[in-house]
Design a protein around this nucleic acid. Structure first.
Lengths: 140, 140
DNA sequence: TTATAATTTGTAAGCAATACAACATTGTAA
DNA sequence: TTACAATGTTGTATTGCTTACAAATTATAA
């Protein structure tokens, strides 16, 4: 919790209750949360919490690089804390998002084919290990 | 045009005028088109064209692997013909999507960390070469 | 405290995408 | 060719995520 406060201070963002809660959410749940999920979680503690605030907060946090939006399905965005560079695996069966440790050489260089790289996003789609096992899911 | 017809035949999909037009669009414009763009282009030739048909067609084409949806912004999907494996570069300034030739080892293996891979999506975000040049855009 | 700036809130509006039913077209069988 | 079933297309209505906006609230500075 102190960590989160320092993170906000370092970016000159006032650590309001709402903002702290949102980041705490992403920190504890280990990311990949939809706006609605975050909203519902926090609403239990702060009933007056507005979904607009969640949108606003995540949007400004993304701008300064504290959080990262994950866009895979095109239906709804998910968010995670901006930590080390990694990819994602999206299970088409259970819709879960799994972190994949992968480093990309091009990203480190900061440019590719003359284009300046600011962000790198990579994800696999398929069936996760868990859904592949006969006991827990159907074999593909 | 004959190519497109054969492509549809191979997948047992009836080559209707609408479907042919949509694929022709993607073929000629070299992909990265939004549903609305495709719709507007075709509407000039076929005024009765329905946007639902564009959605339906692209959706079923994606299912059999003829086209690939590109989801980057989360605002709207783009589509391209399914050719060789590659990534995309999204310019944050001019919103253009550029093909990037990159092959991923993991994808070839078909699995990662025990998860079965069906699709691989990768994209960079940044400022494209064109927007970086002082004459045409502002330096970042 | 009082004034000013920054945040939050709630509702309204925008917009991509989907659902659905009516209509049209194509393929098949007699 | 005709009748009928299956497949495709169209247009409207609806859903659901996201943004706009202005009022209400809270924090900061004088």
């Amino acid at each position: 919790m102190e960590q989160i406060k320092k993170l906000l201070d370092s970016k000159q963002i006032r650590p309001t209750v709402q903002r702290m809660k949102i980041l705490k959410c992403l920190s504890e749940k280990k990311g990949h949360l939809t706006v609605d999920t975050i909203y519902e979680i926090i609403r239990k503690e702060i009933p007056t919490m507005s979904k607009t605030t969640v949108y606003n907060t995540l949007s400004s946090m993304a701008e300064v690089g504290i959080v990262v939006p994950i866009v895979i399905t095109g239906k709804e965005a998910r968010y995670e804390l901006n930590t080390v560079q990694h990819h994602h695996f999206f299970c088409e069966r259970c819709a879960k998002v799994i972190d994949i440790e992968v480093q990309c050489d091009h990203f480190c260089k900061g440019e590719i084919n003359g284009h300046k790289i600011n962000e790198l996003h990579g994800y696999f789609k398929g069936v996760c290990k868990n859904c592949l096992t006969p006991e827990k899911g159907r074999k593909l």
